[in-house]
Amino acid sequence: MSAASKAGHDDHGHGHADGASHGTFKDYMTGFVLSVILTAIPFILVMGNVIGNDRITGIVIMVFAVAQIVVHMIYFLHMNTKSEGGWTILALIFTLTLVIITLAGSLWVMYHLNTNMMPQHMHMG
């Protein structure tokens, strides 16, 4: 985060068309190397069945996905709390809230709908 916000500050006074949408070569390379690592590990874990437990593997690769999304946000999309006076991060937080409600809500409702509405003997028969 500090590298991205520093890059944002360096831009001031150059007359760019935006607040902080620029990165340095180092930013891009850091983001790229981190992304390659964070992509390769989940693929290796799943293809090589390294952990042996599907549930744990699933949780681990989800954590890697979230980490990589954060890396992309910082190093490629140059997100920080300062750009556009904080409005981009505010829009992002609002969107993420809606995304979590959409995903968690759908799964929760549909799971209960399936378990409560479907008579068990239908499955058995």
Binding site: G19, S21, S83
Partner: peptide, 12 residues
């Protein structure tokens, strides 16, 4: 704050 320009609204 010295970090915005009229065109900045396009990016937002």
């Amino acid at each position: 704050k010295g970090e915005h320009h009229p065109e900045g609204s396009t990016m937002l």
